[in-house]
Write a protein that binds this DNA or RNA. Structure first.
Lengths: 165, 165
DNA sequence: TAAAATTCCATGATATCCCATAAGATGGCA
DNA sequence: TGCCATCTTATGGGATATCATGGAATTTTA
């Protein structure tokens, strides 16, 4: 089975910017790092630009590679490619878990998403997000109400069954 | 034969949040976990967000993987995909039965559905649900009365045979 | 050399494992 | 067809490991 990022959890951010990555996510990061071996700590990538500026997105090495490959398929020098490279390559950084399963968020990253002394991790399948708690709640509320306003045939749950395997 | 989740049963939730999963359901979970082997314990997934907030829903690995695969077909960063991942990945968690066939419900999960020291498991074919007993009874009653108010051609029993494969 | 970043150690809380038991279900056999 | 032996299930308690978090010590770097 390929494990995916699932679940949400709240973590303290200390004065140095250290945060624990949820234990369940670590397993996924380990599986997704081809260079990982027992006893070491997995590498992964954090994208801080992205479509939305309001959260950080963490990718395993293998899932960011998929995205990189897709970008490489776009014509060199095309505007599209340039934009995506800007967001996904330029505005991202490698990270490594420390021995206790933490990462450190630089001031730059913290400011980017307005984080104080708490952070919420949210699993999103092939990636996870890091949010400032209040912003996260707003995001959920917004999502909820936009979901409620959808018509029957806009409902993504129902659309799922129309996709073919 | 592909076994399905069938039947309902009531179980104690102890101080640590431990509950026995009905033995019949365990067989289904075992069959639905590609990594399961005799002697080990099956993994599965509990979704706690979903369209309805009033119960937990348990899926086998293989049935949740089907959903995950469909979601992965949607364009990355699309609204639809985001909504579905929020409901199905973010608001869910991996679970593993222990040797005696139990799982532990975290406080978070218990609060989510208002569970005290008892829980009802209800088989729903490809998934099962976990309810606080009183809420479950209300749900049954509501379903009953809404069913009674349906006209002939709204009756799902009758619609069943009109579907084609 | 001062500030920043990284490594190392410590600890309480939580979750997980391991063992125990009683009741019920199952099946064999007289 | 009634009784006994055995297995499975549901449940509880205690021991142990993992996790989240904080602080000190050491290294790096500007």
């Amino acid at each position: 089975m390929i494990r995916r990022f699932r679940g949400e959890s709240l973590h303290k951010v200390d004065a140095k910017g250290r945060v624990s990555v949820p234990a369940a996510f670590r397993r996924v990061l380990e599986e997704g790092d081809p260079d990982f071996s027992r006893g070491s700590s997995p590498n992964f990538v954090i994208v801080y630009g992205g479509v939305r500026g309001d959260c950080l997105e963490g990718y395993t090495i293998s899932s960011i590679s998929k995205v990189d490959k897709l970008i490489s398929k776009l014509p060199r020098f095309s505007k599209d490619r340039e934009i995506l490279e800007r967001f996904i390559n330029t505005q991202s950084t490698y990270m490594q878990l420390d021995e206790t399963g933490r990462i450190v968020l630089s001031n730059r990253l913290k400011e980017k998403i307005g984080i104080g002394d708490e952070a919420i991790f949210a699993g999103m399948g092939e990636k996870f997000q890091i949010w400032e708690p209040k912003n996260y709640q707003n995001e959920l509320n917004a999502l909820d109400s936009s979901f409620k306003n959808l018509s029957e045939d806009e409902n993504p749950f129902l659309k799922l069954d129309q996709l073919q395997d």
